[in-house]
Structure formats: structure tokens, C-alpha cells
Nucleic acid binder design. Sequence first.
DNA 1: ATATTAAAAGACAATTAAGTCTTAAATAGG
DNA 2: CCTATTTAAGACTTAATTGTCTTTTAATAT
Lengths: 156, 156
Amino acid sequence: MLLSKACIYGIRASLYMAAMHEQKRQFVPIREVSDSLDLSFHFLTKILQQLTAAKLMESYKGPKGGIALTRKPKEIMLIEIVAAIDGNGLFTECVLGLPGCGHKKACPLHDKWAYTREAIQIMFNSTSLEEMASKGKRMNLRLSDTLSMEDLITSS
Amino acid sequence: MLLSKACIYGIRASLYMAAMHEQKRQFVPIREVSDSLDLSFHFLTKILQQLTAAKLMESYKGPKGGIALTRKPKEIMLIEIVAAIDGNGLFTECVLGLPGCGHKKACPLHDKWAYTREAIQIMFNSTSLEEMASKGKRMNLRLSDTLSMEDLITSS
DNA sequence: ATATTAAAAGACAATTAAGTCTTAAATAGG
DNA sequence: CCTATTTAAGACTTAATTGTCTTTTAATAT
């Protein structure tokens, strides 16, 4: 699996927040996000803490509290979310985990992998939350079994 | 992590077998492989059973027994090893694990990911054991802390 | 102040991946 | 036939990931 579940959930939650951003909503309770996306509230909380630690989101306690993106969805790239949760081993490490592989000595797959992993990196690096959210809206993406992006953005 | 450890170990063992093939050795004891590569014998045994189940290797019990590649290293592509151990979810599944994503409804990353995952697939699909082994020999690849490909092929 | 809301922190449980150990089955050689 | 060698099969342990639950801390509103 390319991304951990934690990372995937973090991305989905970020997408939800991007949709909320279009509605000018600021702090959204984690409970609302977890209910909407059908994710474990506590597990999501821990994941979002990683995103706030990485300054991608900020949080506010108490009534009217919740989480919010710190920047506009257009300015947040997917790679930032991936790196915050899964780290950037995917973009730096040897595919074969070979002891000799690295800067100096390359493994037999090194060159091909360097190329491929750059393609992966570019994919995450060139995709913003805004782009995903608008695509999701156009294509009526399902964020959970009961919730679609279109519901989310065109309603309310 | 792109590949599981089991898959990585399976690839390393296959590389070792490719090197043995150049020396016209047929059945090589798993114990020799695990010792040489500094891997757990029993764990490696289970991994190799997956490769024999996939007809990439064959095994022989008893004295003079061991494992052997069923085809020439030139004819065995890396993707076969990956598929035998990790399956081909990497080449078929949605990156975001989104419920709506698939043939009909695509997720916001679908097009980019379809392209990227094809790059990954092509990488594994176009690399043979022979190619890796000869590159490994040229570059004196280390298969473990104490063993290099060059030792392996030029010696004995 | 007090009660309520909501995130933070951390203990705990379940699941999966990774690794170990024991026993059984097959084969070669004496 | 007997023993040594080697894979096969499966139970078991450990570690990492995933997921749940409880308590604490901070903010709001009354």
C-alpha cells in the first residue's frame, strides 16, 4: 500500500475541510468531520493532531471550537499532508531497502526507481486541496458511503 | 512503504538465485540463502513458498535439495515476484481508498495516479532478474552487510 | 463561578505484519 | 532400512498499525 490508512484518512478530512472553506466555515468540530466521513472520532483526532503539529491546520478548544485549515485550499499541496503523516521515506528511500543503496552506491533498481518516485512526488506536489475539491465536486465524489462532495459544497 | 518486507526479502533472495544461476548451480539450500543474506531462515522459507506456489521457483527436499529458479533470470520479471508476494493491489487500487473511486466514478487523484501507477508497473514489468544481477555485479551491490554481488558471481 | 463544549493526552484493545520455533514429510546415501 | 538433510506446514511470539475509551485541559456561554 502506497499510503497508510492514517494518511488516507488525513487526506479525506482535509478534503472535507477544503469543502467547508468554500462555505466560509472556519472552525469545524472534529466530531462533525468524523461523523460525516464515517471515521473513528478518536483515531481521526490523533491524525489531525499531526496535521496541526505540521501547521497545516489549527485547532481551537471549547464551544465554537474545532479545526481549520491554516491556508487556502489552493495553497495546500497534497504532499504536505502525506509528509506530515507518513513522512517522506517514500520520496527518499531505496525500494529494495538494500544496505548498499544510497547516494554513493546505487542498487540495481536505483535509476528506474529514482525516476518513478519522482513521478509520485510530482503527483503529490502538484495537486492542491482546491484542485481535488473542485474535481470532487464536478465528479460528485463520494467521501463516504452516504456523503458526496456535491452534497457538501452545493448545499447549505 | 511501497513494498512489504516480505516482498523485499523475496526479491533479494531471487537476486541471489540469479547470481547462482550464472554459476550453473541448481538447487540451493534455503539455509545458504538466508545465511548469506542475513535473513531469518524460517521467515524466508515462508516467503519462498509463495514464490514456488507462483511457479517462479521450484523446490526439492532432502540432501542436495533446495530451491531453484524455474526460468532463466532473463525471463523472470520483477513484477512477477512483487505480484506473487504483495499481490497487485498496488497496480489496481485507488490511492485514496475512496469508496466512489473505480471504473465508473473516479476520485480526484484518479487520472494522475493512473499515470503514476503505470510508471511503477512499467518499472517492475521491464526489469528482469538478469538485468538486476548484472547491474548489481557491475556496481558491486551489497546484498547484506557482508556480502556483495561481485563476491558472489566472480568467486568460486 | 459553573456547566457545557470541544480538543489534547494517554491508556488500552484489536488487527495485521513480521519473525520464531516445532514437528512432519520427502529424499539421498550408506 | 536407517540416518542425515532439507523443504513444508503450522503453531506461536513480537512488533507495528489501527482503532477505542477515559481523563485532562482549555474555551465559551450562562
